[in-house]
Design a protein around this nucleic acid. Structure first.
Lengths: 206, 206
DNA sequence: TTGTCCCTGTAACAAATGTTACCCTAATTG
DNA sequence: CAATTAGGGTAACATTTGTTACAGGGACAA
């Protein structure tokens, strides 16, 4: 098990524990890691890749909440582990991703034993709360064109590639908008010179 | 110090610690408990009353996130305690409120020592995350009239009184809308029979 | 090759929300 | 008391976003 990526985060004893109790899982782009209403029995710790976390309402409308990168876990998932409630969100792989699955019953034990685990869990909660605040800011205070711009920039960061393989419909779904509206705005941005449109691709100029 | 309200939550040893290390604070309706950008050195634990938590952007536009009731704390504040970052939110008293202020440096120590503290902190994070999700749902998926209805209902719950002393402007501010729009919708709801409007008051019929 | 499906562009229109302006009245202040 | 201010009602209009409809071209399978 290659734990290089998380070595700086945890104390040595805990790393050994993780190696012993955790299991590696590899998931492909597009795979659904966690789905709505699912019971979660493992804490997913991302070693490599990127996962997007999405909220959905009863009509099937959706909204992208945030991306989770390596060295992190999804606090929304931690919830479920603690209380054995069902997942309120869906997690989908953005790119091929590797994670360690840690049995959720170790959560509390490790909290009492390992300082670095406490820091890890609590700062993950902090990060997720902040991400949710950013999502709220977007939806509440920004107009759609600004949200779209932010979305594209985050996508570039999360994929480490400024040529995005994505359709207008997918964007519309992530932003809870409609395809026509997104096409309209993208066209305006292209005329603006901030990007270049192609079939299934958007090349960002920044 | 009257700790009756929180007695069921914590183990006896911890209660004694809280009594020893915490200090009582009484705040009046409208008082700002935590303000944007503030450093927080105490974990506020609500014993009696209700506090509303608000997000604001750089233009002064705002949005009500959620209410915090007794037996709870504000996880957004926990963040700040942990990392000594500045507050991302403002907390304002809805009604006269009593709280215990716990020095934030005890946070980590108690996490390692007391199971009930771990449960308390983690379930508070869980609650806050869920409240934020609800806020996101409102803003993203609901139309303004539905949001207004939900807002009024929550207000009634949080104040335990179905006659609300509030102006249309205050509502507009909490919902990040404008006074004219709120008045328009309230009037429609009055014609609907779901409430009764008066100067500075709204009487809910439900 | 032909047919089908998916992606994109565009126009015309509809709905939701925000803005401005003005009025009336209750409450408060001097 | 008069004067001022705050809360609320309403109309007209602007802006943003969503919806419907349709057309053209690329990708792909039969």
């Amino acid at each position: 098990m290659n734990l290089e990526a998380i070595k700086p985060i945890f104390e040595t004893n805990l790393l050994a524990e993780i190696e012993k109790k955790g299991t590696i899982r590899e998931v492909k782009k597009g795979d659904v890691l966690v789905d709505l209403g699912e019971q979660i029995k493992f804490i997913p710790l991302i070693i490599k890749g990127s996962v997007k976390v999405v909220r959905e309402d009863e009509n099937g409308d959706g909204l992208l909440l945030y991306f989770v990168d390596y060295g992190n876990t999804c606090a929304m998932t931690l919830n479920c582990c603690m209380k054995n409630t069902k997942s309120e969100i869906r997690a989908v792989c953005e790119i091929d991703t590797t994670l360690i699955m840690i049995p959720s019953n170790l959560m509390d034990l490790w909290l009492s034993q390992y300082k670095t685990w406490r820091v890890f869990i609590l700062s993950n909660f902090q990060n997720r709360l902040n991400e949710l605040l950013k999502a709220i800011d977007s939806v509440t205070f920004m107009k759609l064109d600004e949200r779209l711009e932010r979305y594209l920039n985050e996508k570039v960061l999360s994929q480490k590639n400024n040529i995005l393989k994505i359709t207008h419909l997918e964007i519309a779904t992530d932003l809870n908008s409609s395809r026509v509206v997104i096409s309209r705005l993208l066209k305006k941005m292209e005329k603006n010179g901030s990007l270049l449109l192609g079939r299934n691709t958007i090349q960002m100029n920044s």
